[in-house]
Design a protein around this nucleic acid. Structure first.
Lengths: 340, 340
DNA sequence: TTGAAAGCGATACCAT
DNA sequence: ATGGTATCGCTTTCAA
């Protein structure tokens, strides 16, 4: 494409000034006379001058790019997060490079490698289910690359985090199930490596314990890939249903697991909620349209994307090294419907 | 972040060669001796040399960026498309800049402006519902910026297109409704500006006509913003239900409209399909879980993203101007469920 | 086959 | 307050 944008040189020539003067005038440097600034800025505006970002990047060693690391773009939760990220990044003239790893550690590493090659200024990261070793992030963090973790975070790297109140969300849902009278409440959750798994499990156990109900290890089933493969969910379900005393309610701990379990239970011909109740974390669009309408714990995905991005840009643009970090915790919303 | 990558100069110094020789050797230029090439490539490999993309971009006036223009990232159809785009772009080392306009013409123009500022090498475009005037694209196309339209396309700009067989999809669904015995089949569709609206309407009318059923203009309702605002869908529905002879079946012509209509009909207390049947275009995740399970026309969104991206990269990398363009038409899949 | 040097556009240091 | 110039890393033309 023919680039018909004007450059600093064009302005300099037209106004009989030097490149440097024009450059400084555009930045509003205090060492430039009012008159010249006016002149330059007006000329730039009327001729629709836009600094060449590639040149700026090369010179400043800043790309104004943010790398996004997550498992799956079409996942409704993450798609909403991305939308939130986009809303902030675009306003602040940052560009997004979005990578998806499909819950593969290997792809996560490869994607990260690509992102650093693109010399992103910072990273927004939500770990893959397979990721136990985080040294690939550690290394970049040690080199000073700003990063913010969201949703699936790690405490091993000291930086900002934006998460959901997973403990509270799981607690509320479990408590709701208990109060509805369910006696054997199981949970199908994601990979044990993930922070969200640990926290949601904690909320689940806390609710049981507070209501003097036993925590039965058989009632806790893991999906190593967060339900990315449906067979995982199926075998988790079968494990539960084959118990001597199968559960009468299930708390599903992520979007994919919720939809997958719901669907599989139907296919097995079990009645929800009469034979088994289902409540789960889900940012699915229209859980009220399900049969039966689904009780969900909803996260504010859009807000999570926004806050994580704001924190990251703060880090990226901070003049001095940041040493105190925030852990933002967003509230969940339990919406009770007919499935419980 | 401290950039510890080695540069061409480092290699040149280490091997006692000139910059230019190293540069050419790395590109496998034929004017460089085998020996030197080997030497340089090995050194580069072992020292993990990665060309600085910002420098390359500046020099070549190529950014290896693809701009994506669409209405909404979390929309399940577009999220899948993006996933398809990503799968190709990432393999070919192109970077994605994704913009969403929320069906606003103004935001589409502004986003486009930003994309060109970022000097993208090409565009993947799906028009907003508000967009009637496409001169902002026309201008860039005239300047030689490669672009490929997908889903919501325009014939006014001669370039590749990747679309769904909208006529066929709407025809199949309508035919199905007719064969099920419905007599008054209405449709709620998107903005009349959109190609998908025109084509789906054509399929709808064709099916009616072929079965000797009248095309009733009252039975065709438009949503100027594609159902981005739920009130649009509600008033479309009300218009239909207030008719002297209200329809006994509805074909909904887009994802948002399908879910919106389904939900509103339920809220109005009408029984699906007994009082009114619903079939619609939808790439929603789990229409089989709905109550009742939803009859859908499914598009291959992932494939659409892939093909559009392949065509675009072809255009971008083509040495000589491309003058003959493809219009790829992907098949739809009608999945009949209980809602019809 | 290889080297020297100009240049992509913007920035910042060193002069004046 | 302004101008000259080197520089970021890479590509490419022109010379040798």
């Amino acid at each position: 494409m023919k680039n018909d944008n004007i450059t600093i040189k064009d302005i300099a020539k037209a106004l009989n000034l030097s490149y440097s003067t024009v450059s400084r005038a555009l930045k509003g440097s205090y060492k430039i006379s009012e008159g010249t600034q006016q002149l330059v800025k007006e000329y730039a505006a009327t001729h629709n001058y836009r600094p060449n970002l590639m040149a700026q990047s090369l010179k400043n060693q800043k790309s104004r790019c943010i790398g996004v690391v997550l498992c799956s773009i079409p996942n409704s939760f993450f798609a909403e997060v991305i939308s939130g990220i986009e809303s902030i990044a675009y306003n602040k003239d940052y560009l997004l490079i979005i990578t998806q790893n499909l819950e593969s550690y290997e792809r996560e590493v490869k994607n990260l490698d690509n992102l650093t090659w693109r010399s992103v200024d910072g990273l927004l990261v939500s770990l893959s289910t397979e990721t136990e070793d985080i040294s690939h992030f550690q290394r970049l963090h040690d080199q000073g690359l700003p990063m913010v973790f969201f949703d699936r975070v790690t405490d091993a790297i000291p930086t900002h985090q934006v998460i959901t109140d997973n403990i509270g969300g799981a607690f509320d849902a479990t408590k709701h199930l208990i109060e509805r009278g369910y006696k054997r409440i199981a949970t199908i959750t994601s990979s044990p490596f993930l922070s969200i798994t640990r926290e949601r499990l904690e909320g689940y156990k806390k609710a049981l314990t507070e209501h003097n109900m036993p925590v039965n290890d058989d009632h806790i089933q893991y999906c190593p890939h967060g339900g990315m493969v449906i067979e995982e969910i199926d075998s988790a379900l079968n494990n539960l249903l084959q118990l001597n005393e199968p559960p009468d309610a299930i708390l599903t701990a992520s979007d994919r697991i919720t939809i997958g379990s719901f669907s599989l239970i139907q296919r097995k011909g079990l009645l929800i909620p009469d034979e088994i109740a289902v409540a789960g974390f889900s940012n699915f669009n229209a859980p009220e349209l399900f049969n039966p309408p689904l009780t969900t714990v909803r996260q504010n995905a859009f807000e999570m994307g926004k806050q994580a991005t704001e924190l990251l840009i703060q880090l990226v643009e901070s003049k001095r090294p940041v040493t105190s970090f925030e852990k933002k915790v967003l509230p969940t919303e339990l919406i009770v419907r007919k499935s419980t």
